[in-house]
Design a protein around this nucleic acid. Structure first.
Lengths: 156, 156
DNA sequence: GGTCACATGTTATAAAGTAACACCCATGTC
DNA sequence: GACATGGGTGTTACTTTATAACATGTGACC
């Protein structure tokens, strides 16, 4: 994800989709949770809970407790609006909430962007590999480190 | 991995392989590192650094510093003798060090065992999915949560 | 036997995440 | 309107996980 796109649009879209999804589900996207979602979406780079906490504190003009952020993140993850990148202890907005996602990410070592993909071949391969061993898949995690296209083309 | 196997054998094997590999590479598997490797292998469940630290302190009869364990683990991971399970912040012995591993794990939610697999379909699917997006893979991480065969057969 | 590189020890601190409990506030009910 | 109810938020304290900076030991090689 290069810096060449209109990111305010990404944020606005994400919030709109979140509003719609939560309304549809009767889930309460409160002001706080909405603001946290917005902060998660402030880039396509996964952001740590404490980074979000800092932003939030600044917005509020007073210190916020870590739990406040963690609780909001927990809600957002449950609703599928945000994913947690395990290998980074960080959170990133979901580009397609509502759809079933198996959680596959291409994380660029250079720019830090995490692109979410949902490649059926990867999902199928994991299920097949697990099935061969009698393992029942509940939640696959795929986090691939490497170099994204634009960082390969424009090395720093 | 049920409890029905001779685990002392797993440990002994792991240590033997580690000795051989390190000798071959000129890497220094010191007494400390060897002991940490042994503690990682004390089960097939990924273990946290602080759990290992506790065991080590007990063995030594005196408190050991976290860094001691982290440094040993870092060495073991570099040598491919141990893998880190990102989604658990924990470490598990590698069943086949020396071989190229892409790091694929089936982690059972019930018994906690982490079975390492190296399924070519999964590896290939990831590379293909990445290639389609112009992404160059450096280090894939696959950690699948679910239920292992024996826990499906003998639910708790 | 000196020295160089790497391993370990020590102390302190940072970063990430949670527990327990109080309070607020919107909603539905009488 | 008073009241109960339940989810959301605030507050304080704490746990778990990980690292930084610097001193000291040790083994192999010249």
């Amino acid at each position: 994800m290069s810096a060449l796109h209109d990111h305010t649009h990404c944020i606005a879209d994400a919030l709109t989709r979140a509003d719609a999804l939560c309304a549809e589900r009767g889930a309460r996207l409160t002001a706080l949770r909405r603001r946290v979602l917005e902060l998660v979406w402030s880039s396509h780079r996964p952001r740590g809970a404490y980074a979000i906490l800092e932003d939030l504190s600044q917005q509020e003009g007073k210190a916020t407790a870590p739990l406040t952020v963690y609780r909001a993140l927990e809600f957002l993850v449950e609703q599928g609006l945000v994913h947690r990148i395990e290998s980074l202890n960080a959170y990133v907005g979901c580009a397609d909430p509502g759809a079933v996602h198996s959680g596959q990410f291409l994380v660029c070592e250079s720019c830090g962007d995490a692109a979410e993909i949902d490649d059926p071949r990867v999902g199928a391969a994991i299920i097949a590999a697990a099935a061969d061993r009698g393992f029942r898949v509940q939640r696959p995690t795929v986090e691939v480190r490497g170099l994204c296209k634009s960082c390969q083309e424009n090395p720093r």
